[in-house]
Design a protein around this nucleic acid. Structure first.
Lengths: 197, 197
DNA sequence: ATCATATATTGACAGTGTCAATTTAAACTC
DNA sequence: GAGTTTAAATTGACACTGTCAATATATGAT
């Protein structure tokens, strides 16, 4: 199915990324291995080296693509400026949570810089786009906000980011968060919105 | 120095934990290895197996001890009930951030359940204590808070936890958080306090 | 002093990531 | 179209890793 009679694979790089994502989604970050991927694709254990310098390079590619994917999701139905600040913030936060719940390991990979190459400018720029989306929401409603917009952005980002990770790592002990779905998230985000208005 | 002329090491378990913490603090979670530790302690590569079933078991011990350590720090000068809610919350959050900045890899290990044994009840209980500390602060000032105390607790915890991780993972892009020290943290926590009062 | 137990050793196995040297296929040039 | 260059895949090696089984040794209890 994947095997190709020709010596040259043709689109091996693409297949490697695809397989790596599959392992990432079905298992974990640490389950990703270059030899394992090569075995799955029925190719020599060292074949991936032609397309990725090393494992970190591969993970950096996964992170960069994931960032772009997430940004594209956000942009798909980004609220117009006429909606309320609350609506816009909730849209942003809901999208992040939804993505995290759907792709837990991708979400973790996005922010764990020890796995990726911190000198990679493409990754840097892809990540930056997330912050741009959030700050632009706050800026369009700046008239409602008193004081420092940067602190507000960091506050919202820390809140939603922390909550998503707590959910993904199952750090909210039993009974501590039996409210599922988006309800809890809406509640805590509302507290913060209440704090800035 | 570590080497002991006797066949039996005497306190090998203790030494393993100590060495593991050293590697954790100076390098990373993934740098911890049972063979590596054995090499450092000049014992056979399989000696640690007598004290820890496997690597996960060792990491679970590190996490449990770290939780207890963190709780002991919190308890050392936990504010009395007479201080303001704001003071009490700031004390809690500052302590968490300070610990995270001092022991970044321990902090990460605490919440990354994929490294530890999620069936370990000791670890569970040690973690639970953190939440107990936070909720008790909110409860002693319950009169000032309107609505759902659980959501408030989760909101604060998500905010501080998220902020600490953003700092540790260096996810706050350049210029996005040039305010160092506790200043930024105080600012975002104040926003949330403002939201609940 | 003997025996049981706890602890440490040795050796093996299947993995891993990353090199270097080699072979093959495709692409480009004359 | 033939010859050469270049890209991509292969093979083999190296030094690691965690874990298991079999063995050896020392300690503590009887």
């Amino acid at each position: 199915m994947v095997k190709n009679t020709s010596y040259h694979h043709g689109n091996l790089r693409e297949q490697i990324v695809k397989t790596a994502f599959k392992i990432l989604d079905e298992e974990s970050i640490d389950s990703i291995g270059v030899r394992k991927i090569a075995r799955i694709l029925e190719v020599a254990h060292s074949a991936p080296a032609n397309h990725f310098q090393n494992k970190q390079d591969l993970l950096t590619t996964l992170a960069t693509e994931s960032f772009r994917h997430l940004v594209s999701i956000i942009d798909k139905k980004i609220p117009q400026s006429r909606v309320s600040l609350q609506e816009a913030i909730h849209y942003f936060c809901d999208t992040i949570l939804k993505y995290g719940l759907q792709y837990p390991n991708r979400y973790k990979l996005l922010w764990r810089t020890e796995y990726t190459d911190d000198k990679d400018s493409e990754l840097d720029e892809a990540m930056e786009e997330i912050y741009v989306r959030l700050t632009s929401i706050l800026k369009t409603h700046a008239q409602k906000i008193h004081t420092d917009i940067e602190s507000q952005a960091i506050a919202f980002w820390a809140l939603i980011h922390g909550y998503v990770l707590l959910r993904l790592d199952e750090n909210l002990k039993e009974g501590f968060d039996e409210v599922t779905g988006l309800e809890r998230q809406r509640a805590i985000v509302d507290v913060l919105i209440n704090g800035i208005e």
